[in-house]
Design a binder for these strands. Structure first.
Lengths: 230, 230
DNA sequence: ATCTGTGAAGTCCTTCACAGCC
DNA sequence: GGCTGTGAAGGACTTCACAGAT
């Protein structure tokens, strides 16, 4: 039983963050008709080390066979279960600007355990218009969505100015998981989980490494110059 | 001098990843006319602990005043310098589907040190069409972009099937920093840096925590039922 | 008196390396 | 022989708590 508790409660955050990658790699393997895989192969497909992969999987239980490897379908099922993807999670996207419309059109949701039940916008002139096959609904529908559609996850795709207001409304309606695409920090109660996606941040991290690389080349050139001067 | 080396080389990855958030918070403060800030206040604005903030900033140098705090403009400048944002980095976006077009329209690039110099697509029927004020260019333009525009960063916004091919072309043209929005692992040389943004992964992480929460409620209900039964 | 900058301690995560099992 | 699962070692990051500066 203590092992069970460990398997259910004790998965480190860093491991959880990698499980979707393993699941995706397993799905690819399954599509290519491969039914068995070693930790070395799966790790390569997911872009991690095999030791890390095995340690991560050990937190879920013992689903491999020593001397053989893992059965692809079985492992995919176990990871799906651990992530809670055996059920479909209802998702609402708030903010129908360029990004919101791109997200609404993204086909990856349905295939990965999510169901976009509503597109919302604060702007009355957008409400009622169509995005793909869906109609844009007003923010006032949030309460009903949580009650009737068991809406659990909200995606914020608004500009930064509106994001906190949208978050407040989501929380008030009972949503406790938020994916935030707006470039700002959200203030929410402790029991609400927020994850942030920010492409400017990612580009700035890349810029840091680019600059460091360039700086090193400059230093190398300088030292060559120095040697010539001597 | 050894302090200089530490400041240039030794910034931990975890710190670098938070610097953009500090920069954003500082920009907000500056816009609101605030010229001085304590580590406690800035940390709250950026959503981290003050100890973490101070430790992060200590890797850049000593730009605060004990007993007083940090000057907003000065600190923003120092962080910009550390991140390499005193110059504008030329960026190309590859893949003009829904996501690529949303990225092309995103105004946050220009204001944060980046310059979108080209929109590219592999599909000949898209090449030549306009996205915003820009014309979509063919992949064959990549070499010229790297040579003439000093293109340094490539953004991949294609479907997963094409992403590896696009990455190969970017690398062949000399791009060594890639931001990948496609849900797949890219195989690149070790000196090429890839960062990945994947909304499905983020949603799955949220689902894990939602499920864990629900699971706990179920257990709580069970134990209540148990007590009632006893 | 106040707030920064930082060694030291503590926590979390990764890697190693091998026992255990097929 | 080959591969998984895992304690133990190692490394990275965070938090503590206080010396040092104004």
């Amino acid at each position: 039983m203590s092992a069970d508790v460990a398997a259910r409660r004790g998965i480190p955050d860093a491991s959880v963050a990698r499980l979707p990658g393993y699941l995706q790699a397993l799905t690819n393997l399954a599509e290519r008709g491969i039914s068995s895989v070693s930790s070395e192969e799966l790790a390569a497909a997911a872009g991690v080390s095999s030791a890390k992969l095995r340690k991560d999987l050990s937190h879920l239980g013992s689903y491999g066979v020593r001397g053989v490897g893992y059965e692809v379908d079985r492992l995919a099922y176990e990871i799906s279960t651990a992530l809670g993807l055996t059920q479909d999670w209802p998702v609402a996207i708030v903010g129908m600007g360029n990004l919101g419309r791109a997200l609404a059109a993204y086909s990856g949701f349905a295939t990965r355990g999510f169901n976009v039940v509503a597109l919302l916008d604060h702007d009355d002139s957008l409400v009622g218009t169509s995005v793909g096959k869906r109609r844009v609904r007003p923010m006032a529908d949030l309460d009903a969505l949580v009650r009737e559609d068991r809406l659990a996850i909200g995606v914020i795709a608004t500009p930064a100015d509106s994001a906190q207001d949208v978050a407040d409304r989501l929380v008030a309606a009972g949503v406790r998981s938020i994916l935030n695409f707006a470039p700002c920090v959200l203030d929410v109660p402790v029991d609400v989980m927020v994850r942030k996606v920010d492409m400017s941040t990612e580009l700035q991290i890349l810029a840091f490494h680019e600059q460091r690389r360039t700086g090193e080349l400059d230093l190398a050139e300088q030292s060559v110059v120095g040697e010539v001067a001597l």
